Amino acid sequence: MAAGTFKLDLGDQKKNVFVTQLQDRDYDEEDVTAYPIVKESADKLIETGINTLQKTLLLKKEVEVDKVHLELLSKRAEFKERMQACSERQIKVQKKQQQMKEKVSQYEKFIKENEAKRRRAIQKYQNEVKLREQRTRELEMLQEQLEDLKQREKISQTKKFEQYLLRVVDAMPENYIEMQDNMVNSLMMRHRTLNETNKDLVEGVSEKADELEKLRNHLDQLKQEHDKMKLSINSELSKMQKHQEGRVDGNKQLEESYILGKGDFREQRSELGQILMAINNIANKCTKETDIPVERIMLDEKLDRIQEYMLERIDVAQMASADGSEGDQRTKSGRSGHSWSRKKNAPKVMFAA
């Protein structure tokens, strides 16, 4: 067994017996409960328990130490990796520092060269400024001399114009311009006025030319429209000519039909004339002295007059041939038996007894 462990020594099992029980009794083993008997002392038992607790704590501490040792190893490995990374970074930083030093040296060299160039440029600028000032003074002097020469040349050139104007003034007729102290100035004013008038006239001519161009364009447009209208009118005229030709052909056909029917019309006309003459003759015979003349009445009235006259004659004849009341009765029946038929404006009259 391991150190610090203990063992309970169980002796012979005794039966539970009450103190008041005077005599021994036989009991079944099933009815008797056995309890262990501890032979060691209490001090030894306490010491044994304390040792066991210390060993348990020691084992726990050993486990914790193992965990801490493993963590320490991992931390050492991590620290080693970090130190290696730091060394690599340090190497890179050193390289960058070296590069920066080289660049700084280059920039310092460049700055020194630029400073030298700047000084040389400033010196050159100052020299050029001095030279420019000197040249400017010389230029001003030369310009003054040039202006003087120009004025002299201008005076010499205008001198001939002045002489010319004086000759013109001498050659001008009297009262051509208003008399003033300086005739040359008045002549120049007159020339200026005429020049402005000429400009106005030229502008007016140009405006009129523009208007004329616009009118020409308008005329061309009207001509084009006239040509278009002429074409349309010609097309309509051709259509109307075709229509007229058709009408002429139709008229020719109508004339032919008229010529063919003219003979029949003449016969009908002659018959109608004979009928009208017969009606007029009969109407004259049937006219009384108190009646209106035949020439002043219409054809219907003539026929009515003839009809009345014939009816009167028939009545007279019937009255003469009849006797008494029988004659009257026959006359009435005869009148009712007569039937007259006449067409309006017709030349024929039909009688039925």
Rank of each mutant, 00 (worst) to 15 (best):
G250I: 05
M319K: 14
E308R: 12
N284P: 03
L131W: 02
G273S: 07
F265W: 11
R167N: 10
M310Q: 14
G261R: 15
R296N: 09
S270H: 11
E40M: 13
G49I: 09
D170V: 09
R120F: 08
T52G: 13
K92F: 04
L139Y: 14
N234D: 13
T193G: 12
Q106P: 00
L311V: 09
S325T: 06
I37P: 00
V205N: 03
D28G: 03
D300M: 03
I233F: 14
L194V: 07
L237W: 09
E236V: 13
M172H: 04
Q157N: 07
V168P: 08
K239R: 10
N281S: 13
K96R: 15
K199M: 05
V205R: 01
E29M: 05
I292L: 13
A85K: 07
R335E: 04
E256Y: 06
Q123S: 15
H338N: 04
R132C: 10
I46T: 12
K228A: 14
A2W: 06
R89D: 13
T193D: 15
I177L: 15
L231C: 03
I177R: 14
G11Y: 01
N198S: 14
D181C: 01
D291V: 05
Q143T: 10
Q98T: 13
K75S: 11
L59I: 02
F79G: 01
M319F: 04
N198F: 15
S74Q: 06
A2D: 10
N284K: 15
I50A: 10
K239H: 05
S206P: 00
T33H: 03
K92Q: 15
E207Q: 08
M277Y: 04
